[in-house]
Design a binder for these strands. Structure first.
Length: 152
DNA sequence: GCCAACGTTGGC
DNA sequence: GCCAACGTTGGC
């Protein structure tokens, strides 16, 4: 049984269209311990809502799946990377990433405002005030509810 | 661009 | 280990 997740990306940096074109991509640049720890628990085949953040409107734009389990984020010791962290080395990596694979881009964005208006999702982490995690777990019932909306 | 909410850092 | 100061996220 897969687990379910939501991962945020700023579309200017990496969008669902970028993933669609590449088919697969490392999810690099996560520099938050909680998000990192969650990624370390991901398994191949886990399903992911792809979320566009810091844009208008923000919301879920499609789905992807985890195609490679967590491994060291090599951008963390690349001095030319925006994600460089002097405390991370190949011998002792501080940051990790998974690879994800494109599944589907929805015909319409499911906006954060819409999600917040659904009583069924009032307990979803994403819709909670002050929720800033860029990688978060989604429950099976939340996943089913959201994917069912799209089929209507 | 503002700012609330949260995370991280570092002095003590 | 506390907590003030600072930095970041991300919606609006």
């Amino acid at each position: 049984m897969p687990n379910y997740w939501l991962m945020k990306s700023e579309p200017d940096a990496f969008s669902i269209d970028d993933l669609k074109e590449k088919r697969q991509s490392p999810w690099d640049g996560v520099r938050n311990y909680q998000a990192r720890n969650l990624m370390k628990t991901m398994e191949e085949g886990d399903l992911v809502f792809f979320y566009h953040s810091s844009c208008s409107p923000a919301g879920i734009v499609g789905t992807a799946k985890v195609c490679k389990k967590a491994y060291a984020d090599y951008t963390s010791w690349d001095k030319n990377s925006a994600y460089f962290d002097s405390k991370s080395t190949p011998e002792n990596p501080r940051w990790f990433m998974v690879d994800i694979e494109f599944i589907e881009k929805w015909s319409e964005i499911l906006t954060l405002a819409e999600l917040k208006n659904m009583p069924e999702l009032e307990n979803m982490l994403l819709t909670k005030k002050g929720s800033r995690l860029s990688v978060m777990p989604v429950t099976k019932s939340e996943w089913k509810f959201i994917t069912l909306i799209l089929k209507k």
